[in-house]
């Protein structure tokens, strides 16, 4: 057998993701006031969370901020049982798709303070905030059952 030549090629690059003016307002309120904001499209009658500058359906520019509840409904979930370098926590842990009261769209976040066996769709959940906010999505540590 001829020796095959295969070369390890690491790739490392540093980036900074702009969250923009809308994102900055959202993360600032979350960080400083533990307040969760959404954005309403008056034409499509939808409240987006996370908030966005433009409605993807009608492309209207949005500026109608809405304060959302820190409570919502679990739409669906999964429990992670395997370990990989990309996993943010040690297994087992649960991801949920959560729709906050007052919003029409969902976000994906961790479920905490919960036995994976007892999670069920439709369960009511509440955000648990990080003591000192840093201005990113993990200022909500996880959602716990009500």
């Amino acid at each position: 057998m001829e020796e095959k030549m295969v070369f390890d090629e690491p790739y490392v690059a540093h980036y900074q993701y702009s969250v923009g003016a809308v994102g900055t307002k959202f993360f600032t309120e979350l960080r400083d006031n533990k307040k969760i904001l959404g954005m309403r499209c008056p034409a499509c009658h939808l409240v987006y969370f996370p908030p966005r500058a433009t409605c993807h359906r009608c492309l209207a520019k949005l500026d109608e901020w809405v304060e959302l509840s820190d409570e919502g409904t679990l739409i669906t979930y999964t429990v992670v049982h395997y370990s990989e370098p990309v996993q943010p926590q040690e297994p087992p842990f649960a991801y949920g798709l959560i729709r906050l009261d007052g919003a029409d769209t969902c976000i994906c976040h961790f479920l905490g303070e919960v036995d994976p066996e007892s999670i069920n769709i439709g369960m009511r959940v509440k955000a648990v905030f990080r003591e000192k906010g840093e201005g990113n999505m993990l200022d909500i540590r996880y959602f716990k059952p009500l």
Binding site: S18, G20, L59
Partner: peptide, 19 residues
């Protein structure tokens, strides 16, 4: 630099202008 917009919002400015 355009820290005032996300990538998506930046694209949207051009898309809306073209439309």
């Amino acid at each position: 630099r355009r820290p005032d917009v996300t990538q998506v919002e930046l694209i949207n400015e051009a898309v809306k202008a073209a439309l």
